[in-house]
């Protein structure tokens, strides 16, 4: 231990800080091997399993895989945004990481910016892996027009935003890091079953469809179906069309609602910290 007074480093600008925070989050993610495997490869593994079991078509020569991939993209986005954050944040709160950030001059939003960047990187990676595996092994037909790619982009972006905000909002529900997976996983799982991820949505009981319509996952799946299924399949949707305006509206409303919850209920310290 010496008394050397050496040159100082100037404070990073806000944007630079946010990017550095994001880089730190991504690095932490990539270094925990189990997380990388389970998060990035999960949707692809699911498509391998389901694609191998259900080899049939769902009409008009469209393979089941073509339907199932939309649910898997949506699940991937929900896992990266909602599940990951709603579990990770309570754990970091328990470990005192949040409290420590709070004690520094770091602007609070930088913490969330770091999480958003991490979620973005994971979402892009897992979606690309999923699409690549599906195309190579199961002959998935990728969107064939710029308009469809554009729809894919905005639906995914709005969906991941809603999921991320919901994840941050839901992070205040679990009281301890240890209980977080138990609190979050059932919510995610039930939403997947009722929102048409594993089964064709219209084959579900009507009351279940109605419940699912209250939550973002159903609309995210529906928006993605408009991209990956032929236009004629819109007629099979509950309202007789893919109803993209409604997809945008519901996902947008969830963003607003979740943001309001984040701003009012987010906790930086645990209950025992007072």
């Amino acid at each position: 231990m010496t008394t050397t007074e050496t040159e100082t480093t100037a404070r990073a600008g806000a944007v630079e800080l946010a990017v550095a925070q994001g880089g730190m989050e991504v690095r932490q993610f990539l270094r925990s091997r189990e997380q990388v495997v389970f998060t990035l490869a999960f949707p692809a593994i699911m498509i391998l399993v389901f694609g191998s079991i259900f080899k049939g078509t769902i009409g008009e020569g469209v393979k089941f895989t073509q339907y199932f991939v939309t649910g898997m993209i949506a699940t991937g986005l929900m896992t990266a945004g909602f599940q990951a954050l709603a579990i990770q944040i309570p754990m970091e709160r328990d470990r005192g990481v949040l409290k420590r950030f709070l004690g520094t001059p770091m602007p609070k939003w930088v913490y969330f910016a770091g999480k958003v960047l991490m979620v973005g990187v994971i979402a892009v990676l897992e979606t690309v892996i999923l699409l690549a595996v599906s195309s190579l092994l199961f002959g998935l037909k990728l969107p064939d027009s710029p308009a469809k790619w554009l729809t894919f982009l905005w639906v995914s972006l709005l969906g991941i935003t809603a999921c991320t905000l919901c994840g941050v909002a839901f992070s205040s529900v679990a009281r301890t890091g240890r209980s977080a997976p138990a609190v979050v996983t059932p919510v995610a799982l039930i939403l997947q079953f009722i929102s048409g991820v594993f089964f064709v949505f219209t084959s579900l009981p009507v009351w279940m469809q109605n419940v699912a319509s209250l939550f973002p996952l159903k609309w995210l799946c529906q928006g993605l179906r408009s991209v990956f299924l032929p236009a004629s399949f819109g007629a099979h949707e509950p309202g007789g069309s893919f109803n993209l305006p409604m997809v945008g509206l519901v996902l947008g409303l969830w963003c607003v609602l979740a943001l309001a919850l984040c701003l009012t209920t987010f906790r930086w310290t645990t209950k025992r910290d007072g």
């Binding site: 050496t6 040159e7 100082t8 480093t9 100037a10 404070r11 990073a12 630079e16 800080l17 550095a20 925070q21 730190m24 690095r27 932490q28 270094r31 925990s32 470990r95 005192g96 990481v97 949040l98 409290k99 420590r100 004690g103 520094t104 001059p105 770091m106």
Partner: peptide
């Protein structure tokens, strides 16, 4: 502030964590 409990950054190295925190301050030490 040095809190009573440690906040852990499991997968980062000592150097990375200290360098990251240095970014928060206007006149951080080396």
């Amino acid at each position: 502030i040095v809190l009573q409990g440690t906040g852990e950054f499991d997968e980062l190295s000592v150097g990375e964590v200290v360098r990251h925190f240095a970014r928060f301050y206007p006149a951080a030490d080396d």
